[in-house]
C-alpha cells in the first residue's frame, strides 16, 4: 500500500492508504482526526470540508494519494494553541450557528476559507460561499450572523418581536 506524507495542521504526518482511499478516510481512520465529518455519500453536504494547500476542498472528493506532499488543514487545527475557541468558532457559539453540530466542522472550514479571500463578506457573499455546506438544523441565519460577527461586522438584530400580521384578504 502506498504511504503518503502530508503536513496536517502544521505537523508532518505519514499514513498508509490504498489507492482508492478517500482523503477523508485517511484523515479519520488513518490519522484519527475524526473532526472532519462524513455527512453524505454524494459529495453534496460539505461536512468534510478541509483546506488543501490553502483552498477549501471536500475531503470525500479527493483521493488520499492526490494529497501526498500537500499542506492540509482540518477543524482540529482551528482552535487556539491553549485549546480555546478561535474567532470563528466563538462566533458560531455566540450566534447560535450550530445546533446538532454535525455540519459545523465543514461550516467553520468554509468560513475560514471565505474570510481568507474576503475579510468582510456581505450577506449575499456569505450565502454564496456556503452553497456547498448543508445544515439541517439552523436555517442558516445563525451561521450567517456568526460569520458577520467573526469578520467584525454588525449582526442584524434577532427577530425578537411578533411576526407581522398577515394582511387580510
Amino acid at each position: 500500500m502506498p504511504e503518503i506524507s502530508m503536513r496536517v495542521n502544521g505537523t508532518d504526518r505519514t499514513v498508509r492508504v490504498e489507492n482508492r482511499t478517500l482523503l477523508v478516510h485517511a484523515l479519520r481512520d488513518g490519522l484519527r482526526l475524526t473532526g472532519t465529518h462524513v455527512g453524505c455519500d454524494t459529495s453534496q453536504c460539505g461536512a468534510c470540508t478541509i483546506h488543501v494547500d490553502g483552498a477549501p476542498v471536500k475531503a470525500c472528493s479527493m483521493l488520499a494519494v492526490e494529497a501526498d506532499g500537500a499542506e492540509v488543514e482540518t477543524i482540529e487545527g482551528q482552535a487556539m494553541s491553549d485549546g480555546s475557541l478561535n474567532t470563528i468558532q466563538q462566533a458560531f457559539q455566540d450566534h447560535h450557528g450550530l445546533q446538532c453540530g454535525f455540519c459545523t466542522p465543514g461550516m467553520v472550514m468554509a468560513t475560514a476559507a471565505l474570510l481568507r479571500e474576503n475579510p468582510k463578506p456581505g450577506d449575499a457573499e456569505i450565502r454564496h460561499a456556503l452553497k456547498g455546506n448543508i445544515c439541517r438544523c439552523t436555517g442558516y441565519q445563525g451561521i450567517v450572523n456568526a460569520i458577520l460577527a467573526a469578520s467584525g461586522q454588525p449582526v442584524p438584530a434577532a427577530m425578537d418581536s411578533e411576526p407581522a400580521p398577515v394582511a387580510a384578504e
Binding site: 460539505g46 483552498a55 477549501p56 476542498v57 471536500k58 479527493m62 456556503l130 456547498g132
Partner: peptide
C-alpha cells in the same frame, strides 16, 4: 459552478 469547494478542484 457548483460550490466553493468544487471550484477549488
Amino acid at each position: 459552478i457548483g460550490d466553493m469547494a468544487v471550484r477549488s478542484r
